[in-house]
C-alpha cells in the first residue's frame, strides 16, 4: 500500500461504513421490476485478477444510487425519451425510420449486451455506434451521426435501456481474439506522466479513494451514463479518453481502433453484470 493510499484511507475514516462494503440490503431493483446483478463471478479470462466483478453503482453514495431505482428519478431517461421520438422519425432519403425495420425499441432487447460485436459482412468489430451509423447510411440514406453527438448518445441510451437487467455477454474469441488481446494489452499498459494503467486504478485500487472519490472496477455495463459532472450522457469512448487524459497522456481519439479494442476488452471484464444504461454516476 502506498503512502498516498494510506492518507486517502485515513480521510475515508471520516466517513461511516464504506460505501462498497457488501451489505445484506444492497439491491438495485429498477422500477420495482428490473433486477440488476450488482456482483457476479469474475469471468474465467480474468484468471483470478478480480475475486468477483462489482457494478460501479455499488461504489456510489446512497443519494446517487437512489436516482437509478426509478426511471422518473433517473435524468438519463430524459435522453432515452428523446431517442424514442427520433426512433419513429424518417431520417434519410429512403423515407425510413428505425421503426420501419425494427418496430418498437423494445424489440432491440438483447442487442446491447453483445456489443461490441464482429460484423461478418463488413469483416470488422462494430460498436453499437458503428452499427447505428450503418443503419443510417446504408439502410436509411441518412448522414452518419457523430460518435459523441447527442443523437448518438441518446440512441445508445435507448438501446441500453431496453436491455436492462440482461447480462453483458460479449464474445472474445474467433475473429475478435486479436483485437481483444490488443485491448487487454492496453488495459495493463501504463500511460502518461502519472504512469497509470487502467489496472492501476480499477483492478488494484477499486474501493479506495482517488482524491475524494471512490474508485470502481471500471466496468462499462452502465454506459452511456448520466454524469452529474457534465449533467449529460457520456459515451464509453469519452470516458476512456477522459481516464487516459487524467494520467496526463496524449489520449486516443473517440471512435479510434485503439479505443474500440479497449471497449471490447473492458466489456468482457464485465461479462455477467447487468446492462444498466443509462446508469447515474457523479
Amino acid at each position: 500500500m502506498t503512502t498516498r493510499t494510506v492518507a486517502a484511507l485515513a480521510l475515508a475514516g471520516l466517513l461511516a461504513a464504506p460505501a462498497w462494503a457488501e451489505d445484506a440490503e444492497e439491491r438495485l431493483l429498477v422500477n420495482d421490476e428490473i433486477e440488476i446483478t450488482l456482483r457476479a463471478p469474475a469471468p474465467e479470462h480474468l484468471d483470478g485478477a478480480l475475486p468477483e466483478i462489482v457494478s460501479g453503482w455499488v461504489y456510489r453514495s446512497p443519494e446517487t444510487q437512489d436516482l437509478q431505482r426509478d426511471d422518473f428519478d433517473n435524468p438519463g431517461i430524459l435522453y432515452v425519451d428523446q431517442a424514442r421520438e427520433v426512433w419513429n422519425a424518417a431520417l434519410g432519403s429512403e423515407g425510413k425510420s428505425c421503426a420501419s425495420c425494427h418496430d418498437d425499441p423494445e424489440s432491440m432487447r438483447g442487442v446491447r449486451p453483445v456489443y461490441p460485436k464482429w460484423d461478418e459482412a463488413k469483416g470488422e468489430l462494430q460498436s453499437l455506434e458503428m452499427q447505428i451509423n450503418e443503419c443510417l447510411t446504408d439502410q436509411m440514406g441518412a448522414e452518419a451521426w457523430g460518435w459523441d453527438s447527442d443523437d448518438m448518445k441518446n440512441m445508445t441510451a435507448l438501446l441500453a435501456s431496453v436491455s436492462r437487467g440482461m447480462p453483458i455477454d460479449v464474445a472474445i474469441d474467433g475473429p475478435v481474439q486479436d483485437i481483444w488481446e490488443r485491448g487487454r494489452e492496453m488495459y495493463y499498459t501504463r500511460y502518461g506522466q502519472l504512469e497509470l494503467s487502467c489496472a492501476s486504478c480499477h483492478e488494484q485500487n477499486y474501493g479506495n479513494l482517488i482524491r475524494a472519490d471512490h474508485l470502481s472496477q471500471g466496468h462499462t455495463n452502465g454506459f452511456p451514463v448520466y454524469r452529474f459532472s457534465t449533467t449529460a450522457l457520456v459515451s464509453q469512448h469519452n470516458r476512456f479518453r477522459g481516464c487516459i487524459r487524467d494520467t496526463r497522456a496524449e489520449t486516443f481519439a473517440i471512435g479510434s481502433d485503439d479505443l474500440l479494442a479497449l471497449e471490447l476488452y473492458v466489456a468482457s471484464r464485465g461479462n455477467g453484470l447487468s446492462v444498466e444504461g443509462p446508469a447515474v454516476r457523479h
Binding site: 482517488i210 482524491r211 472519490d213 452529474f228 454516476r281
Partner: peptide, 8 residues
C-alpha cells in the same frame, strides 16, 4: 462537496 478524482 467532494472534489472528484477524475470527474470533479
Amino acid at each position: 462537496v467532494t472534489i472528484g478524482g477524475c470527474g470533479g
